[in-house]
Nucleic acid binder design. Structure first.
Length: 593
DNA sequence: GCCGTTTTCGGCCCGACTGTTTTCAGTCG
């Protein structure tokens, strides 16, 4: 079913109506893909729906609006048929073919299909032959020993299923680990393996290397003079809880935190192929291989087979892999299947921003609100990290939790910070605030006190459950406020913990671009908000992006690396990001106050 | 269902593993 958050079926009841969101369209396509797959449709039709769902999810403008304007078929993988379905969904709230399929295939079968070891074929047979139409029905069938009636289901299958069903009821599908936690484990493991005498090259691959928001497991690719010794070294690390297997091709283990780690030890002359293969993402690799086939070549983790010569090219480096396909090396952060191959072929890959490009940080907290350290300590830490300026932006009057800062207190603080700044040499300390955006869109300080500050960020910290229209109007109003320089963590999401509040970011971006308000990529690894897709859209719309640590302690200034990673995944260059400039230069980019 | 530096029709990425099978379909990454 299509989730209906923020949208009204039978839309006449309201004067204005929330737009059909991209997530809702993508969900509808995914449901159709699942149902068609269970119905036994040709695999390529199913793949077409899945690809379209991904494209829609990665699109930063309203896909429903594109459909209404006749532009939706400009999106890759969306043709006439899918255009019709989006229009039907937009107009009637559902898709006729989905209605038909739901009448034919029980929706509960989708969760059966998702079970590990199951797929559309097995799920459908369970339904056709013994009437299993949900997970509960499957449980009952296993208990009753009915699975053995089926050809192709042996004792082993039944045993595996019992195990899977037991795990499934406990914590649902395998949970992903937020990148910062995975990275800490990866750095520990990679450092230890590199130090081992048998090791030659050791690199973490996978979504971790692409700096994704979260990762499922850890892939490590290595070359070694003694593969067995290196595999054993991994198995013996303190961080490892369980060893699943180890041998001359590598090892598979789990950490105490429950993360699976897969070490693959490969031949040095294939290291580039394997590293490329396991860095992914899937969409990138599929597109790369399709492109290769058109040139008469076949790419796999073992090499590149050339039809013309019948020979397989083995590559020691990733550069050789891409070069053999006529492409420059592509930074891992871009390998998501979002147009990077086309850009690479045209020599138009962006010159991505790096951590050292950042000159200042414009969002940080001290003990005045909920930070752990003083302004003096934060300044010292910022200087150690090579920054030239830092804004102290403690929480505001309505923050609550006993951490609020009254206007009077803030006025005292302005004096203190200005005095401290006077004593600093070659460093600029700014006094600012992270003012709450109240439900009506106004900041929770008076304009008079905001005007006294060097810098104002505005964020939402309360009333998350507003309607999409109201939340959008609220944040747009803040973006249009003459004294607000930037919007902080614009969607409020917490990765793997809390979904974003319902807001039409396209409208916020439009308003920010028009008003000259900057938008932050909050670099906290639990936020990374704006995300990569939205940050790319904002930059393309002409919004100046900030990468801010939101540090609540000195060590959290290092979180900027996650913000830079998100910016790189958004194709941003140093020029897109305002705080790559000196404070003096940045001030020229601000709206006039 | 989409798409076009051979194509508007006939293709559509690659290889390993698993379980049950005797040559392979289904699933997974």
């Amino acid at each position: 079913m299509i989730p209906q958050t923020g949208r009204t079926i039978g839309r006449v009841a309201y004067g204005t109506v929330a737009d059909l969101t991209n997530a809702q369209i993508a969900d509808a396509f995914e449901e159709l893909a699942d149902l068609y797959e269970l119905d036994g449709a040709v695999q390529y039709r199913v793949i077409a729906y899945r690809n379209a769902a991904r494209t829609v999810r990665d699109t930063s403008v309203s896909v429903a609006a594109l459909a209404r304007n006749g532009k939706i078929t400009d999106l890759p993988g969306i043709g006439k048929t899918l255009e019709e379905k989006v229009l039907a969904l937009d107009e009637s709230g559902d898709i006729p073919s989905a209605v038909k399929l739901r009448a034919k295939i029980p929706v509960g079968l989708i969760s059966v299909m998702r079970l590990p070891g199951f797929g559309p074929k097995r799920a459908k047979r369970l339904y056709d032959e013994i009437g299993v139409d949900s997970l509960d029905a499957l449980r009952a069938a296993v208990e009753a020993g009915r699975l053995r009636e089926l050809r192709g289901f042996g004792a082993k299958a039944e045993e595996n299923l019992r195990k899977v069903l037991a795990e499934h009821s406990e914590d649902g599908p395998a949970q992903r680990v937020v990148l910062s936690r995975a990275l800490a484990a990866a750095e520990e493991i990679v450092t230890a393996l590199r130090a081992h005498p048998a090791a030659d090259r050791v690199e973490a691959a996978g979504s971790l290397r692409r700096w994704a928001d979260s990762v499922k497991d850890l892939d490590i690719i290595a070359t070694a003079s003694d593969p067995v010794a290196l595999s054993r070294a991994l198995a013996e690390l303190e961080i490892v809880e369980t060893v699943h297997q180890t041998g001359d091709a590598g090892a598979r283990v789990s950490t105490h935190a429950g993360m699976k780690v897969d070490l693959k030890v490969v031949e040095p002359d294939q290291f580039g192929n394997v590293l490329q293969h396991f860095t992914g993402a899937k969409a990138h690799n599929v597109a790369l291989r399709e492109q290769a086939v058109r040139r008469g070549m076949h790419v796999s983790e073992y090499g590149i087979l050339d039809d013309a010569t019948g020979e397989t090219l083995r590559c020691a480096t990733e550069e050789e892999v891409y070069s053999a396909l006529g492409l420059p090396w592509i930074p891992p952060e871009l390998r998501e299947g979002r147009g990077e191959l086309e850009a690479a072929a045209l020599g138009k890959l962006p010159d991505l921003i790096e951590l050292d490009d950042l000159r200042g940080d414009l969002h940080s907290h001290t003990t005045t609100s909920d930070g752990k350290q003083t302004a003096e300590e934060m300044v010292a830490a910022a200087q150690e990290r090579g920054l030239d300026y830092l804004a102290i932006t403690d929480h505001s009057a309505t923050h609550g939790f006993g951490d609020h800062v009254t206007e009077d207190h803030l006025r005292e603080r302005i004096e203190e910070i200005r005095a401290l700044n006077e004593r600093l040499d070659g460093f600029t300390l700014l006094i600012g605030t992270e003012t709450n955006i109240l439900p009506d869109g106004s900041p929770d300080y008076s304009d008079a006190v905001l005007a006294e500050l060097d810098w104002v960020i505005a964020s939402v910290h309360t009333s998350f459950n507003m309607t999409r229209e109201n939340m959008t109007a609220r944040i747009v109003a803040a973006a249009e406020h003459p004294l607000i320089d930037a919007i902080g963590h614009p969607t409020g999401r917490k990765i793997s913990k809390r979904p974003p509040y319902d807001v039409d970011l396209e409208k916020v971006i439009e308003a920010a671009a028009k008003a000259g308000t900057m938008i932050e990529i909050n670099a906290s690894p639990n936020r990374r908000d704006l995300n990569d897709v939205h940050a790319r859209a904002a930059a393309e719309a002409g919004v100046r992006i900030l990468i801010n640590s939101d540090a609540h302690s000195t060590d959290e200034l290092d979180n900027r690396r996650y913000g830079v990673a998100t910016a790189r995944r958004a194709w941003l260059t140093a020029d897109h990001v305002a705080n790559t400039r000196t404070w003096k230069q940045l001030q020229k980019l601000r709206k006039s106050r």
